[in-house]
């Protein structure tokens, strides 16, 4: 039997090719839009990893996005280096914050977690507002951007946003295809049953949280390079979560492809309807409500029902080999996930 190449790797390769070709075909304005698209999609993918795959509805996600942005500004300005290497710090610091907050976050469930994390983002905003070291209400400027030649800024901004997006997508696919991903989905269905089956739920949750917050911190860092300025009210804004939730609902929560299609639909809507101002938001909100009620699997769920395709299959190899018989949560060595 010829070994079939996994669809997921084909798709990842195709995404990489498209991302490499974009700078060649897009205008300047198009490239700015594509950069933002990469950032927003990476955040939506990370949020979906938490909410859609592990049931952690982290409304306070802007805490980590804003922390990524602020870290980049502080590190790059202090070291006097071009901002791009500081994206790494923009990923590391949110992950450390998430680790520090995890004992509190994981004591909470459902609405307590949603609201508790929202309050944490609000506390971060208020703290930055009164801390002169981070520019208080006026925020910070990215002074080191002058080290980067003007003509290179746009392509570099895009390149790094695209890299962050590609890493996010690959990390999520690899994570979900692993033993660990099996444990994660077992946990989403029933915490207690997963624990009884030998899944170390607290470790799985912690690793998911750290992955998702590091990725959204890096994405936030990329976004605030393009904006040249960061303020507490923009960095920790609930707008971030509104866009994220909209994209994830629209595309289909709990699948990897969902947010990708959701983000495409979101940008198509925004670019065609945003002249309507508030009316555009009314339409998006109504659309989100309608999709949640009548199309819980989102646009991607609909496409999948119509053409039966898996672009990024994340089923475990063993589980797929016995497809059609009993689903299993053991890996190839017979060990429990």
């Amino acid at each position: 039997m010829i070994k079939r190449i996994d669809n997921a790797y084909v798709t990842l390769f195709a995404v990489a090719v498209v991302l490499c070709l974009l700078p060649l075909v897009l205008s300047k304005a198009g490239l700015v839009l594509a950069t933002e698209f990469c950032v927003v999609l990476a955040i939506a993918l990370a949020w979906n990893l938490l909410a859609g795959f592990s049931g952690i509805v982290l409304i306070g996600m802007p805490l980590f996005i804003g922390a990524g942005g602020y870290t980049l500004y502080l590190v790059a300005n202090a070291l006097g280096i071009p901002p791009y290497p500081a994206i790494l710090a923009g990923a590391a610091v949110p992950a450390v914050i998430a680790y520090a907050l995890s004992p509190l976050l994981f004591r909470l469930e459902g609405a307590q977690l949603a609201i508790g994390s929202w309050v944490m983002a609000e506390v971060a905003r208020l703290l930055c507002l009164i801390t002169p070291a981070v520019g208080a209400g006026g925020g910070l400027n990215l002074e080191v951007l002058r080290l980067v030649p003007r003509s290179l800024r746009l392509p570099l901004n895009f390149a790094f946003a695209a890299i962050v997006l590609f890493i996010t997508l690959s990390a999520i696919v690899i994570l979900l295809k692993s033993r660990f991903g099996l444990g994660l989905r077992a946990m989403r269905d029933s915490d207690a049953a997963a624990e009884a089956m030998g899944v170390k739920t607290s470790r799985v949750k912690l690793l998911t949280l750290i992955t998702a917050t590091a990725l959204s911190g890096a994405a936030g860092a990329c976004y605030y390079i393009t904006s040249i300025q960061i303020t507490p009210s923009s960095a920790f804004s609930q707008n971030w979560i509104a866009i994220t939730i909209f994209i994830v609902i629209l595309g289909g929560i709990g699948s990897v492809e969902g947010p990708i299609f959701g983000a495409i639909v979101y940008y198509l809507l925004r670019e065609t309807l945003s002249d309507l101002g508030p009316g555009y938001f009314v339409i998006s909100g109504l659309l989100a409500i309608t999709v949640t009620i009548f199309l819980p699997e989102g646009v991607w769920g609909l496409i999948k029902r119509l053409i039966r395709i898996d672009l990024l299959p994340i089923a475990h190899h063993e589980a797929r080999r016995v497809h059609g018989t009993q689903p299993t949560i053991t890996d190839k060595k017979g060990k429990l996930a």
Binding site: A51, V57, G110, A111, A114, A242, I245, F246, I249, I253, P278, G279, F281, V282, S284, G285, L286, L287, A288, I289, T292, I293, P296
Partner: peptide, 23 residues
């Protein structure tokens, strides 16, 4: 259907109401 759909619907509603009041 669990707590998530209600949360998502009311989040959408929040955006609709805010912008309708602004209009």
């Amino acid at each position: 259907r669990g707590p998530m759909p209600t949360l998502l619907v009311t989040f959408g509603l929040s955006i609709v109401l805010q912008n309708m009041m602004q209009i």
